[in-house]
Computed example of a mutant assay.
Amino acid sequence: LADPGAQDDIDELRELLRAWRDAKASAWKAAIRWIVRGALALLLVGIAMRLGLGHLVS
């Protein structure tokens, strides 16, 4: 940490860490969105089956 370029290296590491955290948060949000969409699709299929519209589903 004593050389002249150390601050630049630390700044770059901080930027990489920030990018990693942003990517991780984005991946979690995308996964949650897919889970919610799947649950809603299953709910719609269930409603269609209840209403006797099963022939439209299959």
Rank of each mutant, 00 (worst) to 15 (best):
L17H: 04
M49I: 11
L16T: 09
A19T: 05
G38Q: 00
K24Y: 01
I47S: 04
R18W: 02
V36C: 00
I35M: 03
A27L: 14
M49E: 06
R37F: 11
I10Q: 03
L13C: 10
L1H: 02
L51R: 14
D9C: 08
L16W: 12
K24A: 01
L51S: 03
D11A: 02
P4W: 04
R33H: 08
D3W: 04
A19G: 10
A31V: 00
G54P: 08
G52Y: 02
R37M: 08
M49W: 15
I32E: 00
L42Y: 07
R50I: 11
A6M: 05
E15H: 11
V36R: 00
V45H: 10
L40V: 08
D22P: 07
K29W: 00
A6C: 13
D22Y: 07
S26R: 15
W20F: 06
D11V: 05
H55N: 09
R37E: 15
G52M: 09
A6I: 13
R21I: 06
W20R: 15
G46F: 05
P4I: 00
R33T: 03
L53N: 14
I47K: 03
A41T: 04
R14A: 15
S26V: 13
L56K: 07
L17M: 06
L13P: 03
L44P: 01
E15S: 12
L40Q: 05
A31L: 00
Q7D: 06
P4T: 00
L17G: 08
D9I: 11
A30C: 02
L53K: 04
L53P: 11
K24T: 02
L53M: 09
D22N: 15
A2L: 08
G54N: 13
R14G: 06
A41F: 10
L56C: 10
L51D: 06
